[in-house]
Computed example of a mutant assay.
Amino acid sequence: MSTTDDRKTRSCVSCGINIAGTNAAAFKCPDCGAQIYRCAKCRKQSNLYECDDCGFTGP
């Protein structure tokens, strides 16, 4: 998958919106290291997220 395609498929793990071109956070899961993306709105509201790979949940 190319970098351009990867940007198009990134979505917030909390609400599911496409985060391409937004002020989103990208970080690694504290448990398994999988890449997680969260939109600014979900970060600001401290919405829970769950890692798709290992099930880790966080605020």
Rank of each mutant, 00 (worst) to 15 (best):
T57I: 07
Q35T: 14
Q35W: 09
Y37H: 15
Q45D: 04
I36N: 00
A26I: 09
D52F: 10
D52P: 06
K44P: 07
T3L: 04
K44G: 04
C29L: 08
D6G: 00
K44F: 11
A25Q: 14
R43L: 01
G55E: 01
G21I: 06
C39A: 05
G21H: 08
A25F: 11
G55K: 11
G16S: 04
D52T: 11
T9M: 13
A25P: 10
A24W: 00
A40L: 12
C54T: 11
R7T: 02
S14L: 06
D31R: 05
T4I: 09
G55L: 08
A25V: 04
A26W: 10
S14Q: 03
G55R: 03
C12K: 03
P30A: 01
T57Q: 07
I36Y: 00
A24K: 06
S46P: 07
R43C: 02
A34L: 14
P59K: 11
S46L: 12
P59L: 04
T4K: 05
M1I: 11
C39P: 02
I19P: 06
A34P: 10
F27N: 02
T57R: 04
A34H: 13
C51E: 00
D52Q: 12
R43I: 06
G33E: 08
T3N: 04
A34C: 08
K8Q: 09
P30Q: 07
A24N: 10
G55Y: 05
G16N: 04
N47V: 08
C12W: 12
G21F: 03
C51Q: 01
C12D: 06
I17K: 15
T3E: 02
T9D: 09
C51S: 00
F56Y: 12
S14F: 09
S2K: 14
F56K: 01
I17L: 15
G21N: 13
A40E: 15
E50D: 06
T22Y: 09
R38L: 10
Q45G: 00
G16Y: 11
D6V: 10
C42H: 12
R43T: 05
P59M: 07
K41T: 06
A34E: 11
G33T: 13
Y49D: 15
C51A: 03
R7C: 05
N23R: 04
Y37A: 14
V13T: 06
A26S: 07
P59A: 03
C51G: 02
I19M: 08
A20N: 13
F27S: 08
A20E: 14
P59D: 09
A20V: 13
K41R: 13
A25L: 13
A20S: 15
I19V: 13
F27T: 01
A26V: 09
I17S: 15
P59C: 07
C39I: 02
A24F: 10
D5M: 06
Q35A: 12
I19T: 14
F27K: 11
N18P: 13
Q45N: 02
E50V: 07
Q45V: 00
K8P: 02
I36E: 00
T22V: 13
D6P: 00
Q45Y: 05
C54Q: 13
C39W: 02
T57G: 14
C54S: 13
A20W: 10
V13Y: 05
Q35L: 04
K41H: 07
C42Y: 10
A34G: 09
C39H: 00
A20F: 12
C51D: 02
